[in-house]
Design a protein around this nucleic acid. Structure first.
Lengths: 275, 275
DNA sequence: CACCGTAGTTTCGGCAGATGGAACCAACGA
DNA sequence: TCGTTGGTTCCATCTGCCGAAACTACGGTG
């Protein structure tokens, strides 16, 4: 079916992948160890990547850093993604309404990726998650909102192989996550209580595109004190509203028109036949 | 010296390079033609890149788009670049002072790259240049400010092989560009009069890092009507001030301390011995 | 319906070219 | 001076990449 991947390219990508927000500069030996390749091979690949402007090398320290070309390519991705464009004003409004920090989260492979963060005005706020950073599916309101809507087999794989415990509040067992999934489906939103970092809470809701598939999540997060029983309903309302509005802008038409109560229809089923 | 680049990686990078802000989605045949490779080879590379999340393929139209991984990598670049972080508040202040749109431009290979744009408040403004977009060295105030400070051999190569005429005001001949270079050195800033797009003018000034090398340019641009002889000195003052402040923040210490008039020292010479 | 043109996919044999072992440098500290 | 660590270069081996060509799928057209 799909042809065997080109090895050299795969390796080059693995090298690029080693650079993260936490470790943005690396030496040859670190990289060589990291991808488990001969120094000589690694060296050649690094030289190639540098030549291509995908890496830069600090000539003094001989250490590598991602190159400008990747910035340019990243901009193209961002720009060509109407999701972010549509989300931006909504996130801003969300921040105004809630005074908390708002996020747009999407699935990426076996984790989730923060596409956009809009800072709230509170001087004290969780700074953990930022644009371009990843979270496991099991930690945080946004990620769990996404997890809950993953197709069966993906959910299984992720829950078995890709959970990470981030605090002692993190949900990590299959049972916990299955219960959470049901909860998210029932309520239509997800709650996070210090499961990413201590003292931080969040509310998240799923975003659907035209076909009804969940492609993103919107969330707001703040410190635990501001997520009181009195506050939460207000936050939930704002987040859900933003997520629904974003879905609408992506071409999603809610079933059942104006909701008159009764069990809300689950548009997942629409997509079920497609997948 | 440097080993022969790995061909497959070079080709893969060439594919990624075809995706621009203008043409963010491409088909196999377009790509195959673009890089001049057999369809079969191209197909295999594309499949590899897709597998690596560097590309996404729209399963309906079979057309390719840059993948999320590139967004993540781009974020890392952006974050690890203190230049942008330092520049951001200065650009904002520049916009407040001038009411025009401000830019941060850096060299990338044989062209220049816009790292950051901060929009002015004028409802009518040049929308041409945006974050992640490139300009040739010979067009625009920012690019020409960079060009003027390129090392001799780079300047030669660029002026011979990488000029682009963008309007009938563009400077394209060696003579024009040499004269412009002298001008920029004499004044300490560059002026652009409709050489990028018609009705648009700009003022740019170079930014230096610790060693005195020019690593970026700051510029503001607006429509020609607002670049009157009365206005220009004010704009120049603001831009030059911002560029100097940014240089200072990057660790550059101006020679000659407080300027008392007389010929301003050219810190290029400091770097000359190094290169 | 038969025909053609265009776009994408798959196969396969040959050989350029990627690979990794090993040797070689350079810098640093003991 | 020697030992260690990290980076660079060389080269014989063999493999994994490449392109020609054949095939499928789709749509338009006479």
């Amino acid at each position: 079916m799909t042809p065997e991947p080109v090895r050299a390219v795969t390796r080059a990508a693995a090298i690029l992948d080693m650079f993260t927000l936490e470790t943005p500069v690396l030496s040859l030996t670190e990289i060589s160890r990291g991808i488990g390749l001969n120094k000589s091979t690694t060296h050649r690949l690094l030289a190639t990547l540098e030549h291509l402007d995908l890496l830069e090398v600090d000539s003094a320290t001989r250490r590598y850093r991602l190159g400008l070309k990747l910035f340019r390519l990243g901009s193209v991705v961002l720009k060509s993604m109407e999701l972010v464009a549509q989300a931006e004003p909504l996130l801003k409004r969300l921040v105004e309404q809630t005074e908390e920090t708002a996020f747009l989260i999407v699935p990426e492979k076996n984790e989730t990726l923060c596409l956009k963060r809009v800072d709230g005005c509170h001087s004290v706020r969780a700074l953990f998650l930022e644009t371009g950073k990843r979270l496991p599916y099991n930690a945080g309101a946004g990620p769990r909102a996404l997890l809950a809507h993953l197709p069966e087999e993906d959910w299984d794989r992720v829950v078995v192989h890709h959970v990470q415990r981030m605090t002692h509040h993190s949900l990590v067992t299959r049972e916990e996550l299955a219960r959470d999934k049901a909860e998210v489906h029932r309520l239509g939103y997800s709650l996070s209580r210090e499961d990413v970092s201590l003292h931080a809470c969040a509310v998240g809701a799923p975003v659907r595109e035209r076909e009804g598939r969940v492609v993103a999540a919107v969330s707001v997060s703040g410190i635990v004190q501001r997520f009181s029983p009195a506050q939460i309903p207000l936050l939930v309302a704002a987040v859900v509203q933003a997520a629904e509005e974003l879905s609408r802008r992506l071409g999603f038409v809610p079933l059942g028109g104006n909701r008159l109560g009764g069990s809300p229809p689950d548009p997942d089923e629409r997509a079920a036949g497609v997948g």
